[in-house]
């Protein structure tokens, strides 16, 4: 179980990166920022290697499937998607401020994957229902969507943290200077939600195609399906409110945070309800 050991390290690497980013924010020293960036990249690289090893191991065991087949693997992949998306944003935008809000989510997901009681981290063969070419595309698109919504959530939190600090120090705090402007946050929030919306749509469509082949109906109002629709409708409302009603700033931040609650319920909460997706518990 080299992969599991590596993933244990990754949890700490992400935590270390988070601490470095935090020190950078407080001391305003870009060297810490560079160190944090390198650490994050290293974490992502190690996690990718661990995923590939796990994938290969499943072939060596004669099962041969992508590491996206149970709850443990989904947690690990969710964390990976979040860090990947964040990494792309840091690289494109040349701004590291978001890390402090995004990395903790990835860290918590991985920590939960390794310490939650009863977590099954074994590689298991695929049950007949999961033996489909649609498994990869469905899970991949869904989690890329979740990751984009996580980034939007982090931006929403950042917006409120900024407001809280701004009120106290009337714009003089070091934290404030490193954080993007309100309009930048808003625009990033919108971009993340738009990206997430497309991935969620792809996730729902690939899921429907799969359901059409596996369950005999493209839609059967299974709780996970229904909640993914609720999440989709929520973000559809958010996009309409922004594009046609001109919602900005605080309202969008609140929507991003509330939308993330829908995402979490779609991902985890529906396990409390009886579901066809129950093999993911």
């Amino acid at each position: 179980m080299i992969a599991a050991t590596l993933l244990g390290w990754v949890t700490f690497i992400y935590f270390a990166a988070f601490v470095f980013y935090l020190i950078r924010m407080i001391r305003e020293n870009e060297n810490w920022g560079k160190l944090a960036g390198i650490t994050t990249f290293a974490g992502l690289a190690v996690q990718s290697i661990a995923l590939v090893i796990r994938w290969k191991t499943s072939y060596d065991l004669g099962m041969g499937h992508v590491p996206l087949a149970n709850f443990y693997e989904s947690l690990v992949f969710f964390a990976w998607s979040i860090v990947l998306l964040y990494g792309l944003m840091e690289w494109r935008l040349k701004n590291r401020a978001l890390s402090v809000f995004v990395l903790p989510v990835a860290f918590l997901l991985l920590a939960y994957a390794s310490i939650a009681p009863g977590m099954n981290n074994h590689i298991e063969p695929l049950i007949p229902a999961l033996q489909s070419n649609w498994l990869t595309s469905h899970v991949l698109t869904c989690f890329m969507g979740y990751a984009a919504f996580t980034v939007a959530f982090a931006l929403g939190v950042m917006f409120f943290v900024k407001k809280a600090f701004g009120a106290e120090n009337s714009g003089q705090s070091t934290l404030l200077r490193l954080l993007p402007s309100d309009s930048q946050i808003d625009e990033l929030n919108y971009s993340s939600v738009a990206l997430g919306f497309i991935f969620l749509t792809l996730g729902i469509v690939t899921g429907s195609v799969w359901a059409h082949y596996a369950w005999g109906s493209y839609w059967s109002w299974d709780p996970k399906e229904t909640w993914s629709l609720i999440t989709w409708l929520f973000y559809a409302v958010m996009l309409h409110a922004r594009l046609t009603r001109g919602w900005r700033g605080k309202r969008m931040a609140i929507m991003a945070i509330a939308g993330f609650a829908c995402v979490l319920f779609t991902y985890l909460g529906v396990n409390l309800l009886p579901s066809l997706h129950s093999y993911l518990v």
């Binding site: 109002w221 709780p223 229904t226 909640w227 629709l229 609720i230 409708l233 929520f234 559809a236 409302v237 309409h240 409110a241 046609t244 009603r245 529906v270 309800l273 009886p274």
Partner: peptide, 26 residues
């Protein structure tokens, strides 16, 4: 567009109720 927003929200709300209240045979 307000109507669209209200309708989308209502559909979401009904879908939500459907996941909480047992449906059909249940």
């Amino acid at each position: 567009v307000q109507l669209a927003i209200v309708l989308l929200s209502l559909i979401a709300l009904f879908a939500l109720i459907g996941t909480l209240v047992p449906q059909r045979e249940a």
